[in-house]
Structure formats: C-alpha cells, structure tokens
C-alpha cells in the first residue's frame, strides 16, 4: 500500500483509504475517490497528478495525492 502520489504514470490502483482532514476527505469521496474504486494515473511530474477516476480526469495536488492510499494493480 502506498500513497497515490508515488505511482508512476500509466499505473492502475485500487483506493484503500483516505487520510486527509474531514472536509478534504469528504470532498474527495463525493468526487468518487471512495475506497475500493479503481484509479489510473495519467501523468505525474513535479506538479499535480492527473488521475482518472470513474471516467473523469481529475488534477490532484501532490499534497492531496499523498493522502490517498492505494494498492497498485498488476
């Protein structure tokens, strides 16, 4: 299990849990980042990550992305 922020582009993973504050966690979950959901990292550089979740692309700052814990999938 690692934070989403550390996944290389092109990887898929399943969300295990969110560790941020109450408001942020809630907002992320309402946007579809719920435990069990599959995410795909589209791009990841020094800036924000682009991830695809439930058919929608979302940009996440590195701080947010390191609070989403995922299980990489083969």
């Amino acid at each position: 299990m690692i934070p989403l922020a550390y996944l290389p582009p092109g990887t898929r993973a399943r969300i295990v849990g969110l560790t941020g504050g109450y408001g942020q966690t809630r907002r992320l979950m309402e946007m579809g980042f719920t435990p069990g959901t599959q995410v795909e990292v589209l791009s990841s550089g020094p800036g924000p990550l682009l991830v695809k979740v439930r058919g929608v692309v979302v940009a996440l700052g590195r701080g947010v992305a390191s609070k989403i814990i995922v299980e990489p999938m083969r």
Partner: peptide
Amino acid sequence: KTPPELILEIPP
C-alpha cells in the same frame, strides 16, 4: 503554512 491543494476536474 501550506498552499491550497489543487483538486480540479479536467473535462476532455
């Protein structure tokens, strides 16, 4: 101390 976090939906 930290900048606001970016959470932004990116339409096609």
